[in-house]
Deep mutational scan, measured.
Amino acid sequence: MTEYKLVVVGAGGVGKSALTIQLIQNHFVDEYDPTIEDSYRKQVVIDGETCLLDILDTAGQEEYSAMRDQYMRTGEGFLCVFAINNTKSFEDIHHYREQIKRVKDSEDVPMVLVGNKCDLPSRTVDTKQAQDLARSYGIPFIETSAKTRQGVDDAFYTLVREIRKHKEKMSKDGKKKKKKSKTKCVIM
């Protein structure tokens, strides 16, 4: 069974824990209790493949930012979460993405942009803004509501699919490099 290491990042209060708990335990946590770091595991079937999701729910508070490099190193894919009623959390996505790329030393890291709290009427981040940002990053965008469960499975499952595509691409690139290195030079 394939294991996928997913990391949920975003500013404090955007609903990272609520999304994760909704996926794992099928219930909505409405009281806000700032996370330092929590880890969850769940076995699911995605596109006919049974897999184990190892999900790291991270601290959004700035005082825990020193811990970010460590979990970013171990993560295979990242859910970059903002709240649709919090423009600052949307603007912060850029910083999370840049930090992930720096730590992973790669421009090509599996990510999904997630606009959470889409059940709320007080939207300050337009869907088109988020779609445009995701398009500019070359990553999928999904709106979710941890409260109603809308888009929750889709967000995590899409990230797994992005990781699969990335692994497939990397193995193809690896095979191309191996083929090239088999060419021999004969000096007579």
Score class of each variant (00 low, 15 high):
residue 65 S to L: 04
residue 180 K to G: 12
residue 135 R to M: 13
residue 108 D to L: 05
residue 83 A to Q: 15
residue 10 G to Q: 02
residue 42 K to A: 06
residue 79 L to R: 00
residue 20 T to W: 00
residue 26 N to Q: 12
residue 112 V to S: 01
residue 142 I to Q: 02
residue 48 G to L: 04
residue 54 D to N: 04
residue 84 I to Y: 13
residue 121 P to E: 13
residue 54 D to I: 00
residue 103 V to H: 10
residue 34 P to I: 02
residue 104 K to C: 15
residue 168 E to Y: 14
residue 90 F to C: 09
residue 66 A to D: 14
residue 75 G to A: 15
residue 57 D to S: 00
residue 54 D to H: 01
residue 122 S to I: 06
residue 187 I to D: 15
residue 174 G to S: 09
residue 88 K to L: 06
residue 104 K to E: 03
residue 72 M to I: 08
residue 185 C to A: 09
residue 4 Y to G: 05
residue 108 D to T: 07
residue 110 P to D: 01
residue 155 A to S: 11
residue 45 V to C: 12
residue 36 I to H: 02
residue 55 I to D: 00
residue 98 E to F: 03
residue 121 P to M: 10
residue 145 S to V: 05
residue 124 T to M: 07
residue 142 I to A: 13
residue 29 V to R: 02
residue 23 L to K: 14
residue 118 C to F: 07
residue 130 A to T: 10
residue 70 Q to V: 12
residue 123 R to D: 12
residue 51 C to G: 10
residue 96 Y to S: 05
residue 140 P to V: 01
residue 43 Q to H: 07
residue 169 K to C: 08
residue 73 R to C: 11
residue 62 E to H: 07
residue 73 R to P: 14
residue 53 L to N: 14
residue 8 V to L: 08
residue 106 S to G: 14
residue 93 I to F: 13
residue 175 K to N: 06
residue 105 D to A: 06
residue 132 D to I: 05
residue 126 D to N: 06
residue 90 F to N: 13
residue 182 K to S: 06
residue 28 F to C: 02
residue 108 D to M: 09
residue 104 K to V: 13
residue 49 E to A: 11
residue 35 T to R: 00
residue 174 G to M: 04
residue 39 S to V: 15
residue 85 N to I: 11
residue 71 Y to W: 07
residue 61 Q to M: 07
residue 31 E to I: 03
residue 57 D to I: 00
residue 102 R to M: 06
residue 165 K to S: 06
residue 115 G to Y: 13
residue 50 T to G: 08
residue 80 C to S: 03
residue 153 D to A: 09
residue 127 T to C: 06
residue 188 M to C: 09
residue 168 E to L: 11
residue 2 T to G: 08
residue 32 Y to W: 10
residue 21 I to T: 03
residue 31 E to H: 03
residue 6 L to N: 02
residue 182 K to Y: 10
residue 173 D to C: 11
residue 172 K to Q: 07
residue 165 K to M: 07
residue 46 I to Y: 11
residue 134 A to P: 09
residue 138 G to E: 09
residue 3 E to R: 02
